[in-house]
């Protein structure tokens, strides 16, 4: 019997449990494939707060927010491209051409 218990619990553990209904703000959203789409939103919200504190003239506030958002997004894209080039091109080149 003692030998059977782990086996039974193992079978029970493999039984797929039904997923609970989605509860907003309590359960996570499944965004594993497109998480990067939230980065522009993050940049926009950061710019919204930062420019509200630092920008002197509120008449050009929204223009400054849009500009800063684009700058952050462009910076992230540039960092991504640079990382890709370093890892996929530069490091590969060094490995392939290094003296053995």
């Amino acid at each position: 019997m003692n030998m059977l218990l782990p086996a039974i619990s193992g079978v029970l553990a493999m039984t797929p449990m039904p997923k609970p209904p989605y509860r907003p703000f309590i359960d996570p959203v499944q965004i594993d494939g497109y998480w990067w789409m939230f980065l522009p939103l993050m940049a926009l919200l950061i710019a919204l707060v930062y420019k509200a504190v630092k920008h002197a003239n509120l008449k050009t506030y929204w223009w400054a927010v849009a500009k800063m958002t684009l700058e952050i997004v462009a910076g992230m894209v540039l960092l991504g491209v640079t990382s890709y080039l370093v890892v996929e091109v530069f490091a590969r080149y060094i490995v392939e051409h290094a003296p053995r």
């Binding site: 907003p24 703000f25 309590i26 359960d27 996570p28 959203v29 965004i31 939230f38 939103l41 993050m42 919200l45 950061i46 919204l48 707060v49």
Partner: peptide
């Protein structure tokens, strides 16, 4: 907005 978006994405955990 950032706070609630974070909660919406990742949940209360």
């Amino acid at each position: 907005g950032m706070f609630l978006t974070g909660l919406l994405i990742g949940g209360i955990s």
